[in-house]
Write a protein that binds this DNA or RNA. Structure first.
Lengths: 116, 116
DNA sequence: AACTACTGCTTGCATTTGCAAGCACTTTGC
DNA sequence: GCAAAGTGCTTGCAAATGCAAGCAGTAGTT
């Protein structure tokens, strides 16, 4: 996790430098204190998701990118159906489980048919 | 933001109750203290993304769902499950039709239960 | 009744987060 | 050269997070 923390700080500094922004300018635009931004970039502090969100916005990059760097989101293999099932608020937990199992059995059946 | 905070806590409690889990059981599985989980559910504390991640995993729901409820990610239009089914090359046409119908019946069941 | 197990919550506290005040250094303009 | 402006960082502190110890209530068993 510390590895990820270093990554997000380093990544933020890189993006900031690519944008030719001073630390104070980015901090102002992100609405956070510049000492804190400095600490974040150097890996001395582990910012909350809110802070990352503010920084992402100020840097015009996606918040998901920063969350991934910070280890808050997984870099996603787009497995699609299963992810969508899990994310769907219209389904109960047991329905999700049932749907996932049905999906898996379908996929297994289809692959068995294709094997010979 | 306080609105979102209440939402994520309420949502977590709903999901927990749907799973017929005690507060202590969920806390244990999530690896957090049960008093803290209680505070989160009641909106007395605003958990970090790490904590939300742990809870999502223990509840078998996507972390994105919780982040959205917490205001950490923007809501994505939930076209999800049906689109994912249609796009999945691992499914035959008839399997897609069947899965979609099952999904629809689940969604209709869930909404009917919530109406009264 | 007493005891055990389970449930959700209260509370004090250690640690972490994020900030304000200010420092030291560098660059710019006169 | 000097003053002003700009730069990134140090440090002490308030507030927030997350926890451990424990309480009060409920249910089940002897």
């Amino acid at each position: 996790m510390k590895t990820h923390l270093t990554d997000v700080g380093t990544f933020i500094r890189e993006q900031r430098e690519k944008s030719a922004m001073s630390l104070r300018k980015l901090a102002d635009q992100a609405g956070i204190s510049n000492p804190y931004l400095s600490q974040i970039e150097r890996g001395l502090r582990r910012p909350s998701a809110d802070i990352l969100k503010s920084i992402a916005r100020a840097l015009s990059i996606s918040v998901e990118t920063l969350y991934e760097r910070a280890g808050l989101l997984d870099g996603i293999p787009r497995s699609g159906v299963i992810s969508a099932i899990e994310a769907d608020p219209a389904l109960t937990t047991s329905q999700k489980r049932a749907l996932t199992e049905i999906y898996q059995s379908f996929v297994n059946d289809t692959q068995k048919e294709e094997s010979p």
